[in-house]
């Protein structure tokens, strides 16, 4: 692979890798560093790339491993929500409605952030990034059963919390 192919095919995955690293690390600067390191590794290992069936999943797996290395290095667990929260703007909504939506976004973000790591990653890969189960197995280095169990638990944990809010107005 030459530099042009790298630039046109690999670099556009930067946002996906960034979001994935951010889910692990909860810090944009660190996530950016990880993505940069991933690209350097991909470039250095570009000869193996022909053997890799799904290079994007391969990049995601490197992102996961580097993020986990970083977490282990600082022995820290990420539980805080993503720094700046969500700013949802819809012209058709009243200020009250958009504040309400923003609050619910931040709440869901907290629910997901509070999930165990594997569940958090699996729900992100499936519901945000839209990866197939096989790709998630490949990225997370888990078997199909584990992926489905983690996804089931993640979706239902978030659902339960949402239902509780609705029932008790918490």
């Amino acid at each position: 692979m030459n530099i042009e192919a790298f630039q046109n095919r690999v670099l556009p995955a930067k946002n996906k890798l960034f979001r994935f690293a951010l889910k692990f690390l909860g810090n944009e600067e660190e996530a950016k560093d990880v993505v940069q390191e991933v690209f350097i590794r991909v470039w250095n290992g570009r000869d193996q790339m022909n053997e890799v069936q799904n290079w994007e999943a391969w990049c995601m797996r490197i992102t996961k491993n580097l993020s986990l290395d970083r977490i282990r290095a600082v022995t820290r667990r990420q539980t805080q929500p993503i720094e700046d929260g969500y700013h949802v703007l819809h012209e058709s909504l009243s200020p009250y409605e958009s504040t309400e939506i923003q609050e619910s976004m931040n709440r869901i973000d907290q629910f997901i952030a509070a999930l165990p790591e594997k569940q958090r990653q699996v729900i992100h890969l499936r519901d945000v990034e839209g990866y197939s189960y096989n790709e998630i197995c490949d990225i997370m280095e888990l078997d199909m059963n584990q992926v489905k169990v983690n996804l089931f638990r993640a979706r239902n944990a978030v659902r339960e919390k949402l239902m509780k809010i609705n029932a008790y107005g918490l």
Binding site: Q7, L11, K14, N15, F18, R19, L22, K32, V35, Q36, I82, Y86, V88, I101, S104, M105, I108, D109, H124, D127, V128, E129, V158, R159, L162, M163, I165, N166
Partner: peptide, 24 residues
């Protein structure tokens, strides 16, 4: 409505991008 909020969250989360023009 709650489920809709969850799906809206997924859509919004996908918009998060690496905001650094110098990155590449």
């Amino acid at each position: 409505k709650d489920t809709a909020a969850l799906f809206r969250y997924f859509e919004e989360a996908k918009k998060k991008s690496l905001n650094d023009v110098a990155f590449e």
